[in-house]
Simulated assay, not measured.
Amino acid sequence: MVLTVAGIAGLAAGPAAAATATALPGTTACTAVVNHPCLSHEADGDGVVGVARVSAQPDQLTVVRVEIRTQAAWGSPWQTVAAATTVRFGSAEATTPRVTASGPRLVCATAGPALEADKQVTTCTNPF
């Protein structure tokens, strides 16, 4: 199955600096790259929470949006069932509300300079 994510923007201009992000319990830490979202999720018997982080320069107005998407059945359209957005100067994080959803799920995030949509990057996990 090929996942196509609409709205994937080009890479942000300038050098990328790596930093290690902290993960929620039960998730894996990931490496954050400037203006590229770092995703994680926590799934347990009570539901799923999606988390996205983005590293940015302190003077950059930054946006990060994280969504949990589900399908009613394999092959049906993905529908957003929970989302959270944060806009602030510098690095940012957004966490969705906990949701219970059966069927395939995935977490997607879009992040980057808030005033430059063409430099924002979208990434998604594999379905779980």
Rank of each mutant, 00 (worst) to 15 (best):
T85M: 10
P37V: 08
T86Q: 11
T96G: 03
Q60A: 09
V99L: 01
G90D: 09
A84W: 02
P77E: 09
H41A: 13
A114I: 04
A56F: 02
D44G: 12
Q60E: 10
P113R: 15
C38N: 01
A84V: 07
I68Q: 06
Q57Y: 08
S55H: 13
A72Y: 05
T62D: 09
P58W: 00
T86P: 01
P77T: 11
V66I: 09
A114Y: 00
V66H: 01
E93K: 10
V66W: 02
V66L: 08
A92Y: 04
V63N: 05
E67Q: 15
S102G: 13
R65L: 14
C108Y: 01
S76P: 06
P97S: 14
R69E: 14
D44W: 02
V64N: 04
G50R: 02
A92S: 10
P58M: 03
V51R: 12
V63K: 02
V87M: 03
V87E: 14
L106N: 04
V99W: 02
G103T: 03
A72R: 14
T80Y: 03
V81D: 00
S91I: 04
L115K: 12
S102N: 12
V66M: 05
A43V: 13
W78D: 05
S76K: 14
L39G: 01
A101Q: 09
A82W: 08
R88M: 10
E42V: 15
P58Y: 00
G103M: 00
T85P: 04
A111I: 05
A92I: 08
D59V: 09
T110L: 08
